Computed example of a mutant assay.
Amino acid sequence: MSDPSIYTYPSPLEGYQNLPPLSDEKNADGKSYVNPPAEKLSPAYDSFTSPITNDERGGFDVHIYFQQNIDTEVKFATELWERIRREFPELRVYRIWDKPIGPHPIAMFEVNLFTPAQFGAFVPWLVINRGPLSALVHPNTGDDIRDHTQRATWLGQPFPLQVGLLRRLLEKQAEAA
């Protein structure tokens, strides 16, 4: 994981400064707080928050990993890949890699999510249906190293990514440009 102290972070309250204090009133459950009504839903329901891309690349990548030397994981990953393609045909699903590729240390396949609605449907579905497999969920902001490390979320056991390999690939792309 990348050291989070090397990045800067805007205040989470940006755009919400100088508002009246929040109430300490609790909901009927006695635990959660009553929130002030909003004039409209957050725009995050309709498009990914900047700087996440809302274009043909997709806002999020989901890399689903399996150990290529464990037959039960290979079989499960293949069946999961097929199920995803059938149940979520609107998503972009890539081939199954039976060996490490790029910064990914073991076999995997990738799924791209293009809208908050797709993210909201697919990620909870994957939490329940991923079985013994792990998944890396990361945004696409144009900062690939940060996206794969500091901004990434893991479902299941994380695997150490080959970030140095990703860094070298990005340097080669920059040189070629």
Rank of each mutant, 00 (worst) to 15 (best):
P105W: 05
T141G: 10
P116Q: 02
G156R: 02
N54R: 07
P124Y: 02
T78R: 12
Y16R: 07
L113T: 13
G30D: 10
P43H: 05
P103Q: 12
F76H: 06
D61K: 05
F122Y: 13
K75E: 15
P12I: 07
E73Q: 15
F60C: 03
P100T: 09
F109H: 01
G164F: 09
P36D: 12
Q157E: 14
W154V: 11
P37T: 09
Y16A: 14
G30E: 11
L133I: 03
R95Q: 11
Q173E: 13
G164C: 06
W125D: 00
W97T: 08
T153K: 12
R92P: 02
S134K: 11
Q173S: 08
M1W: 08
S23C: 10
E73V: 01
T149F: 05
L165A: 13
W125M: 00
I106S: 12
E87H: 06
L91F: 06
R85D: 04
L113G: 09
D98W: 00
A28H: 12
M1A: 14
D46M: 07
A152V: 05
V127Y: 12
P105T: 11
L80N: 00
G59N: 05
A28K: 12
I6M: 08
A176D: 13
P12F: 04
A28S: 13
E25P: 05
N140W: 01
K26T: 13
P37Q: 04
E87G: 03
N69W: 06
P21E: 15
Y9S: 07
R83K: 14
E171G: 10
E87Y: 05
G120D: 07
Q173A: 12
P37R: 03
G102C: 06
E82C: 07
P10K: 03
D147E: 06
Q173V: 09
P51I: 10
L155C: 02
L155M: 13
Y7M: 06
S47A: 15
D61C: 02
S47D: 08
G120M: 02
N129G: 03
T153G: 04
I96Q: 04
A152E: 04
W154R: 08
V123C: 04
S23M: 12
L169K: 12
A152R: 03
P160A: 10
S47V: 14
P20D: 05
G131L: 04
Q150Y: 10
G15P: 00
Q118D: 12
P132H: 04
F122S: 02
L80E: 00
L113E: 06
K26Y: 07
V163W: 07
P43I: 07
M108P: 02
D143F: 11
V93R: 04
L133W: 01
D29F: 08
R95N: 10
E171V: 11
I101R: 13
G102L: 07
D144V: 14
P139F: 01
E90K: 14
V163E: 14
P4Q: 05
Y7H: 13
E73R: 00
F114S: 07
P4M: 07
P132Q: 03
D61L: 01
E90D: 15
D147M: 08
S42Y: 00
E56A: 14
P139D: 03
V93Q: 08
R151T: 02
V163D: 09
T72F: 10
